[in-house]
């Protein structure tokens, strides 16, 4: 058995202590109870605070369990926060690729569109923010599915939109493996005939995938004649995803 990580054990002990006690504990109490140095305890508490598991009362300075803990399952970044932090990177992506940009987050087994930048050609377009997209038939959805740490895909209804839509769990599993291998996803005429999309993961602290950013456009502009996406477009999408990830990670340090 590989060795255990001591700081994680200690973090777990702190969480149990906070969950079991009166709810509010001072740094000194926690350190004494666990027989740890104050400095060590403080370091762990600060990290737990950063990830939202612990919060500190502004007045008393005491620690308690944080607001993120009861929602661990949905473990996501606030979607409006995600949009606000992404907006300066989504705009240049639309400008560089000439295509529309969407950012999606996982919600109730679908991809919720949290941000949308129009294709910069000044044609009439309507904002998609708030719409739900199927996971298996969109590039954003495939990314969200691929990095969801839920083990084998449960047998779910794979709605068919076009003759190119992925229909079997087996095909989907292979596709998701492909996404994880490449670090980006493609959808070509799998949702709407004539359209294609490319997406890449947005990561928060610790590498957690909190969303996906992608471009959407006519299949002949996104792909070559063999349904392979143009590499410069893939590179732009991945650059934008990385820039947003840096922004999200950097702000938490």
């Amino acid at each position: 058995m590989p060795g255990t990580v001591q700081s994680i054990e200690r973090a777990a002990a702190i969480l149990r202590l906070l969950a079991g006690g009166s709810g509010h504990l001072a740094l000194g109490d926690i350190a004494r109870s666990l027989d740890l140095a104050k400095g060590t305890t403080h370091g762990i508490l600060r990290t737990l605070q950063l990830v939202g598991f612990v919060e500190q009362d502004r007045v008393s300075g005491h620690y308690q369990l944080g607001p993120a803990l009861p929602h661990l399952g949905s473990g996501h970044l606030d979607v409006n926060e995600l949009r606000s932090r992404s907006i300066n990177w989504a705009d240049p992506l639309a400008a560089r690729t000439g295509e529309s940009v969407r950012i999606g987050a996982l919600r109730d087994g679908q991809a919720l569109v949290v941000h949308h930048v129009f294709r910069p050609d000044d044609t009439f377009q309507t904002l998609d923010v708030g719409t739900m997209l199927p996971l298996h038939a969109t590039a954003i959805g495939k990314v969200l599915l691929a990095y969801r740490a839920a083990g084998p895909e449960p047998a779910q209804q794979l709605d068919r939109f076009t003759r190119r839509t992925i229909r079997t769990a087996r095909d989907l599993a292979a596709e998701l493996q492909h996404v994880r291998d490449n670090g980006w996803s493609l959808e070509a005429e799998e949702m709407t005939p004539g359209l294609a999309s490319v997406a890449a993961p947005i990561r928060g602290y610790g590498g957690l995938v909190v969303g996906a950013i992608g471009i959407n456009g006519l299949v002949e502009r996104i792909c070559d004649s063999h349904y392979r996406p143009h590499q410069h477009l893939v590179a732009y999408v991945r650059d934008a995803a990385r820039a947003i990830s840096r922004e999200l990670g950097a702000a938490r340090r």
């Binding site: 930048v117 129009f118 000044d122 309507t126 904002l127």
Partner: peptide
């Protein structure tokens, strides 16, 4: 100048 979003 290009429109990035519009609210009606």
């Amino acid at each position: 100048w290009h429109r990035a979003a519009q609210w009606l």
